[in-house]
């Protein structure tokens, strides 16, 4: 059976546009609000990446760090993260959900139990930032057995040899990190160069859905639309921070922002 993630990419391809993937942190700035945000943006987003926060993140820029700290300050636990996904998935038009975070959280929770809880909650995919290939082989296999897509990451530093091996052991979606950066950095590589690298990866295996993330904003997203999918995260986390500071409702603000992003790639 085709995964829900694959079906979404197919739908988008039919519409001749990339899939829009959003990233927000579960529990930012409360359990209730983050669930409302997911519900509200899923009218325009195709896949929802949901961060499970950790307090020693080694690959995140300030926006996602702050988002995580806000959630942790409210006492968010992994069980709440699963609860949020479960609640969200009760909606009739729920989009595929990908949980994203650091291995320490999975390790502490126990790999098996973590995967089981993901499955129960309706999680469709997992990104574990600091569990690279080949160390992730066994974990990725367990995910697959449980019909969860384990998403491999590729970066500009990944050699072609290594890329081939990673792609060969990947599932139906791969994530390309656009540049040498933590999340949310300023795009220091031209979109043209990013697409050039993107096409090199696609050449290795056309059938894999390849998304681009890191540094994508409303200003740069249009230039990258010749791809299978685009991830916007830090921009959304920053918008939550901004609206909290101005005492505005982040749900409304994010809805508007994701609507605009979608427009730019449609």
């Amino acid at each position: 059976m085709k995964s829900q993630i694959s079906s979404v990419f197919n739908e988008c391809k039919k519409e001749n546009r990339p899939a829009l993937l959003t990233y927000t942190v579960a529990g930012d700035n409360s359990k209730k609000k983050s669930l409302e945000i997911l519900k509200s943006i899923s009218g325009y987003a195709d896949i929802l990446e949901i961060g499970f926060p950790h307090n020693a993140p080694t690959a995140d820029g300030p926006q996602i760090q702050n988002s995580s700290y806000r959630a942790l300050k409210k006492g968010i636990k992994l069980k709440d993260v699963f609860q949020i996904v479960k609640e969200y998935k009760k909606n009739k038009n729920a989009k595929p959900c990908i949980l994203m975070g650091y291995y320490q959280m999975v390790y502490r929770y126990g790999e098996k139990k973590f995967i089981r809880k993901c499955k129960q909650a309706g999680v469709n995919g997992l990104i574990i930032v600091d569990l690279p290939w080949p160390e992730n082989k066994a974990f990725a296999r367990s995910c697959k057995k449980n019909s969860i897509t384990f998403i491999q990451l590729l970066s500009p530093t990944t050699s072609k040899e290594r890329m081939k091996k990673i792609i060969a052991s990947s599932h139906d979606m791969i994530y390309y990190i656009s540049m040498l950066s933590t999340t949310g950095g300023k795009l220091k590589v031209s979109p043209r160069k990013i697409l050039e690298n993107y096409n090199k990866i696609k050449k290795i295996n056309k059938s894999k859905n390849l998304v681009i993330g890191f540094g994508i904003t409303n200003k740069t997203i249009g230039a990258l639309k010749k791809s299978d999918g685009l991830v916007v995260g830090s921009l959304l986390c920053k918008e939550i921070e901004k609206s909290l500071k101005k005492r505005q409702n982040p749900v409304i603000k994010l809805n508007k922002m994701v609507k605009e992003l979608r427009k730019k790639i449609s």
Partner: peptide, 9 residues
Amino acid sequence: NYVAETLKK
């Protein structure tokens, strides 16, 4: 070696 893909190389 629990590191991001970017640091592998």
